[in-house]
Design a protein around this nucleic acid. Structure first.
Lengths: 248, 248
DNA sequence: ACAAAAGTGTTAGAGCTACACCCATGC
DNA sequence: GCATGGGTGTAGCTCTAACACTTTTGT
């Protein structure tokens, strides 16, 4: 009991602070990587855009909170969402000391179009044309891009950003956007197909090119594996991108 | 001004919580990977060991706080320390809602021996023989091991765990401990030496084996590069360990 | 002399890179 | 019929993986 009192004492002395969850939401429009931002309007700087953020509530875990906030702001459920990094410089939020735990999400731009039209607060921005951002949110995004590159080199994570059916040229464009480079299409398709996680469909994409490109989708088995244990997918996308990672 | 009031209002409504920094400190005794734990004695469960932890203070950043705590508890300054993950289940600390931001550190067991003898609160444990741990600290350690494996596959990070001069067999033993496997010594030495970051010394290690093994140390250039920009070291240790990473 | 650990080279196979031409269709 | 983007194969090279014997020296 002696110790119990001592312990509570020690807890009480500590300063508490606000905990925010901020999510970097990536999308892909077929050409460029994009990031979803909101104008919160309740901030000091009326003109700055901000990441999707909110505060941690007493009864929820970090993952739950990040997910709740993404759902509240986009209406999209079950998105790929992964913790990224925590930021906590004492002066990062000038109003009150806040620790921000960041997550990054990958979503399909088109799946989100309808939702977005309902509440106009959110807007997509090209990663190269970001507006001025709240606090240190710009740094968050840079960190998230690095993480996305790392992740994509090992796990076929990019598919989250595409519609259910997609063509190889689309997939290649996505990887080229992620790594800001170009790949040889013969090597790219050989590499991707060797992973044995895609199935080729009968249909072709029409309307974009004259010839039309075959559509693919992720095999059901591969999706399941990925849901159960993401690490179990044996992806060797890395070989294709190793040098890019190093020089970047 | 309207908005300013609204904003402050919104900040005030939020619940605050304690922020703890917990560090997983790895060491290597020449044979097995180890982890430094303390018996804090001020906890509910008197018998459980705990990671090196402390609370965030109002005036410091997360990195500063983690570093301060490691210095306070070990006396070692300038150790390799990197943020790992943040944990925040509502019930993880039964006494009060606490978000724990974890860091992992790599230190040289021998450099720490003297310090350790001064304050007996800390003790090394083999990773395979961990005692019961406070709260969810066991999970923290498992996450840290995964991160260490990932990191070590790309960056020659393991050297932090060895004394300044070390032999190739020692280095190999370290990597084998990290990955819980064995490597062919011919392939291992070829691979490591091809990185061109080690210099071979005249001296040999005496006393352990009859023949004695040549000592090596990390080249000065490589250390500098690593200090300035860790990512710039072109390490291809990955090739050697890729399949281990995937199957683990 | 012998036991114990250190050191060293070669070969086959896999994966990566670079490279060029034909195909299908809309206009 | 021609312009546009889609699709496919090969050869050289590099890196990896598997494998065994000699050297040194303490006992």
């Amino acid at each position: 009991m002696e110790n119990h009192g001592q312990m509570l004492e020690q807890y009480k002395q500590q300063t508490k602070c606000l905990v925010a969850l901020d999510s970097i939401i990536f999308g892909f429009d077929g050409e460029k990587l994009q990031c979803l931002l909101v104008k919160r309007g309740i901030q000091t700087d009326q003109e700055s855009w901000s990441l999707m953020g909110g505060w941690l509530r007493p009864d929820e875990s970090l993952d739950q909170a990040a997910n709740r906030i993404v759902v509240e702001l986009t209406g999209l459920n079950h998105v790929f969402l992964e913790q990224l990094y925590s930021f906590g410089n004492p002066m990062r939020d000038p109003i009150e000391r806040t620790v921000s735990i960041t997550y990054y999400a990958l979503i399909n731009v088109h799946a989100y179009e309808e939702e977005r039209n309902k509440n106009f607060i959110a807007k997509w921005f090209d990663l190269n044309e970001l507006p001025p951002l709240l606090f240190d949110h710009h740094q968050f995004i840079q960190t998230a891009i690095q993480a996305l590159r790392q992740k994509a080199a090992f796990y076929p994570v990019g598919f989250e950003l595409l519609p259910e059916k997609f063509t190889l040229p689309q997939l290649q464009a996505l990887y080229e956007a992620i790594y800001m480079t170009t790949f040889d299409k013969r090597n790219f398709s050989r590499k991707i197909l060797s992973l044995d996680i895609l199935e080729k469909l009968e249909e072709k994409q029409r309307g974009f090119s004259k010839k039309g490109a075959y559509l693919y989708r992720v095999k059901e088995e591969a999706k399941k594996e990925s849901a159960n244990d993401f690490h179990s997918i044996v992806s060797n996308v890395d070989g294709l991108f190793r040098q890019k990672l190093i020089t970047s």
